[in-house]
Nucleic acid binder design. Structure first.
Length: 257
DNA sequence: GCTCATGTTCCCCT
DNA sequence: CAGGGGAACATGAG
C-alpha cells in the first residue's frame, strides 16, 4: 500500500500513540530489516527514550526522540499497527513497547527498512537522496526539477529524486486525471500540461490524505484499474495496460494520447 | 504450477 | 552520463 497518503496515515498513528511517550523497550526486531544498524543497537538506542512528533518525507517516516531518530520505510507491504492486547502478527518486524500498548511495524514482503539516525548528519544521509516532499514542492520547483529529463513523464513522477512521495497508483491516477499519456517524454509537455499535472497530483494526494490510503473511488482510475477489462470511468473506453519503469501502468487510450 | 503485487536498487545495454 | 529493461529482494494471494 504505502505511497505518500498511506505513510501519512502511519504518521498519524505514530503521533496518536507514540509521540510524547516513553518507549519501555524494543522487541522482535527482524535483523534482515535493519539498515546500517543492528537489532541490538536499535533497541539500546531507543529504550527509555521519549518520542517527539513524527514527520514524513516522501515515503519515509521519521520519528525523532531528541537523541537518535527512528526512520521507517514501508516498502510495498508495510504498515504500522497499534495494539493493546491482540497477539502479535507473524509479519511484525519491530515492536515498540509502551506502558499502554505496543506499536508494531508490520511488513510481509520485507522491502523497505528500519534505520537509526544518531544525529542530523546521519539523518541527512538517509533522506538526502530524495527530492522535496510532494506536499511541499511549488509548481515552479516541480517544473525546474522535471526539466531536462529525457524519460517518460510517468518514470519521472516515480523518481523520488524529482519530488518524493508518488508511487505507481498516484502517478497513474494523476496522469489519468490530467489526461496525459504516461508514455510521453517529459520534454514533450507544454507549460499548460505541466501546470495541470501539478494540480492533479496535489489533488490526488490531498483527496487521499483523510483516508490514509489511495481510495478506490468509482470516479477515479483507482476504482477500475484492478478489474480485468476495466473501463475508463469518464468515457467508458476499455483501459489499456502496459509497463513503464517495471511497473504496471493503466491508462485510457482514448483520453490519454 | 503460474502470474501478479501501492518500492527500491543494481547490473547490463543502448 | 542518462535512461530503459530486467532481475533481484521476500512473501504471499488468487
Amino acid at each position: 500500500m504505502p505511497e505518500l497518503p498511506d505513510v501519512e496515515g502511519f504518521r498519524r498513528t505514530f503521533a496518536r500513540h507514540a509521540a510524547n511517550k516513553t518507549v519501555s523497550r524494543v522487541e522482535a526486531v527482524d535483523r534482515t530489516m535493519t539498515r546500517k544498524t543492528s537489532p541490538r543497537s536499535l533497541a539500546r538506542a531507543l529504550a527509555r527514550r521519549r518520542f517527539r512528533d513524527p514527520y514524513r518525507h516522501g515515503k519515509l517516516l521519521i520519528c525523532p526522540t531528541g537523541g537518535p531518530a527512528l526512520v521507517l520505510h514501508f516498502g510495498m507491504t508495510g504498515s504500522l499497527e497499534w495494539s493493546s492486547g491482540e497477539p502479535r502478527h507473524r509479519h511484525d518486524r519491530l515492536v515498540l513497547v509502551f506502558a499502554d500498548g505496543e506499536l508494531r511495524y508490520r511488513n510481509m514482503r520485507k522491502f523497505g527498512g528500519i534505520w537509526l539516525a544518531r544525529d542530523p548528519k546521519a539523518l541527512e544521509s538517509i533522506t538526502g537522496r530524495l527530492g522535496p516532499d510532494w506536499l511541499e514542492v511549488s509548481p515552479a520547483r516541480f517544473r525546474e526539477r522535471l526539466g531536462g529529463r529525457r524519460s517518460s513523464i510517468k518514470a519521472a513522477l516515480m523518481d523520488q529524486k524529482v519530488a518524493a512521495g508518488l508511487g505507481n497508483l498516484t502517478a497513474d491516477e494523476a496522469l489519468w486525471q490530467a489526461r496525459i499519456d504516461p508514455r510521453r517524454r517529459v520534454s514533450s509537455l507544454d507549460e499548460r500540461e505541466e501546470a495541470t499535472l501539478y494540480r492533479k497530483i496535489q489533488k490526488v494526494l490531498r483527496d487521499s490524505l483523510p483516508h490514509g490510503l489511495v481510495p478506490a473511488k468509482r470516479s477515479w482510475l483507482t476504482g477500475s484499474r484492478d478489474h480485468r477489462g476495466g473501463s475508463c470511468p469518464r468515457c467508458g473506453t476499455r483501459l489499456e495496460r502496459t509497463r513503464i519503469g517495471g511497473r504496471t501502468t493503466v491508462f485510457c487510450p482514448r483520453e490519454q494520447s
